[in-house]
Design a protein around this nucleic acid. Structure first.
Lengths: 342, 342
DNA sequence: GTTAGCACTCAACTGACGAGAGTGCTAACA
DNA sequence: TGTTAGCACTCTCGTCAGTTGAGTGCTAAC
């Protein structure tokens, strides 16, 4: 169902005003602020229609109207123009990306940070586990008496580095050999296919260095555990303190708890339907805990797996700004990460 | 000035009740809850005295009394018995410490987490910059075409690992040599004494590999920047949502903002007077922003520098529990970290 | 189809009032 | 002299009625 031109205009005015002020919008103020060439009474008639159709609701008879979730949905689907980053924002982004970046996980957190700053909502970036990548080589570097650094390298970069204890007697060359043996066994294996029996065989082969082997196996094990989970970076959770809809302490606590806990947040963020910007509004969200929030979320390509980036905010959200910003940053992540590391 | 026995008992009762309920405490409830063998009228007289002395205050004439900051101070100085961890808590702690711990920064975050869980206040652990340690060796390990891993090892462990780009032409052996050259120049140097001119000289020496040298220098530079700052781990900031004194949104926002931002928190945490447990109550805190909070803080020995661990909560704090827990964890950190890494 | 006008509705604010908790003071008691 | 019972007093808090103002829906005229 599509609305006629005037109804659309009125709906949009109400949405804009309501998003800005968080107050019900009356007929007079629609006419005044957006200087439409019609009278308040006409607007009232139209508003009554829009309410009948389900796009507006009235908190009580003598209040103005607020957009219903269906109203926001209509706006998002049929009218919204994504608002792109303005010059000063682009400049800031450039600056951030040019800063010295060590590991690429830095990029993720910086982009997330930027997203929450620009939109004033909480942002999240979910980095998928990298199942698809292959072991490339394993190195064991002595760094001190009884200590060594284990490096596990995959085709997308260094997957793990971890200190391990080693017998003090062992020579640097031998460590190299052990590393090579591991590399031989694991090289080309996909992470998710790593077979325990192969590793066991290795353990038999190198019987006399079993202690080191065990340490390495233990470390690799921990690494596998870690890489099995996707990781989450959250920024700007405190932005919701500024939203009047969360002045209620209980609500606030519920939402902040979710936003603080990676685990909870991961459960709540759905897979976006496509890599394009997806918007879910209020009750459209499956997870009960965020049915008074909206999500703007997009997928990005992270070494063959889909990562997610987005913002979470009140239903009364500046969708135009959020959608535009998420889209831009999605593209930037795609672009940055498409420069494969090796 | 010290209080007679009965006054002490009454003060303690009021503190206990007030900490628990956050409500002014009346004379009747003091008698009832702590079955003292005296009447409410007597207690009222004593309470009037305590108020005159400044240990109690009255929000308004017809309300009960609440302890003043001076009252808390007296309690903390003259009466408090630190409450140690109970069996189930100790068990939990053991479990946490036995879990697989990779880098020792994991310990810090786990201990911090435990501290906030047990006390129900926000906890922080500040890890000092490690100025005193010495460079031990520097290694450059090729991990792929055009990529290498730089390891900088000091006498307290691996200080930094960082990927760097290298020319694809360069041989693994040559990287080793470059690493050794760096090691020669830097070995035994204290971090804070690292001299730029020595590094420049090195750059001249290895003219033909200047690109690599520059990359390494750049990375070392970043590392030095990073190590110059102490790092902070915060846990359980959301605990203050449960404190009735912060039901005011503005207050809440102010405090949470500080608790979320490492930088802000660092500015606010004073150096403890000694390594022992220090308590600062409300306005005793120099930093204005936390003059309605109390700090319980202790120092711990972190490779020769003083680290800090503590909790931050409302003035109406369970000091006995907080002080005991902070003390225990301080000792544990001391103990764990005293096993020098090399 | 649009608009002016008007009666109507309802949340939010205001002030009055009573209940309840707790005090301070006084007088009696041990 | 210290302790206690009793009582008048104070102050907050919740409730309730009255008022205000924003905004609506409806009707009649344009």
């Amino acid at each position: 169902m599509t609305l006629d031109n005037r109804k659309s205009k009125i709906l949009e005015s109400i949405i804009r005003d309501y998003v800005e002020t968080a107050e019900p919008v009356g007929s007079r103020s629609v006419v005044r602020k957006h200087n439409l060439r019609i009278s308040a009474a006409t607007v009232r008639n139209e508003m009554a229609d829009l309410e009948d159709m389900g796009y507006l609701e009235q908190p009580h008879t003598s209040a103005g109207r607020i957009p219903s979730e269906m109203g926001f949905r209509y706006y998002v689907d049929c009218m919204m123009q994504k608002e792109t980053l303005d010059d000063s924002e682009l400049e800031l982004l450039q600056k951030i990306l040019n800063e010295n970046i060590g590991e690429w996980s830095d990029i993720v957190s910086k982009v997330g940070n930027f997203l929450s700053q620009v939109t004033n909502y909480a942002s999240f970036v979910i980095v998928p586990s990298i199942k698809l990548s292959e072991f490339k080589n394993i190195q064991i570097i002595p760094i001190a008496n009884g200590k060594a650094m284990l490096l596990v390298v995959t085709d997308v970069g260094v997957l793990m580095h971890r200190q391990i204890d080693i017998p003090t007697s062992i020579a640097s060359e031998e460590l190299q050999l052990i590393g090579k043996a591991f590399t031989r066994v694991l090289s080309g294996t996909r992470l998710e296919e790593m077979r325990r029996n192969e590793l066991k065989a290795l353990r038999e082969d190198l019987k006399n260095r079993r202690k080191v082997i065990d340490k390495v196996l233990e470390a690799v094990d921990i690494m596998m555990q870690g890489s099995r989970d996707e990781s989450v970076v959250i920024s700007g959770a405190l932005n919701i303190l500024n939203e009047p809809e969360f002045k209620d302490l209980e609500k606030l606590k519920r939402i902040l708890t979710i936003l603080e806990e990676d685990v909870l947040l991961k459960q709540i963020i759905p897979d976006p339907i496509s890599e394009e910007v997806n918007i879910t509004i209020g009750k459209e969200n499956k997870a009960e805990d965020i049915q008074e929030m909206s999500l703007v979320i997009a997928g990005y390509n992270n070494f063959g797996e889909m990562g997610k980036i987005g913002v979470i905010g009140p239903v009364r959200m500046e969708y135009w700004k959020a959608a535009g910003t998420v889209e831009s940053l999605r593209n930037i992540l795609d672009q940055v990460l498409s420069k494969k590391y090796f």
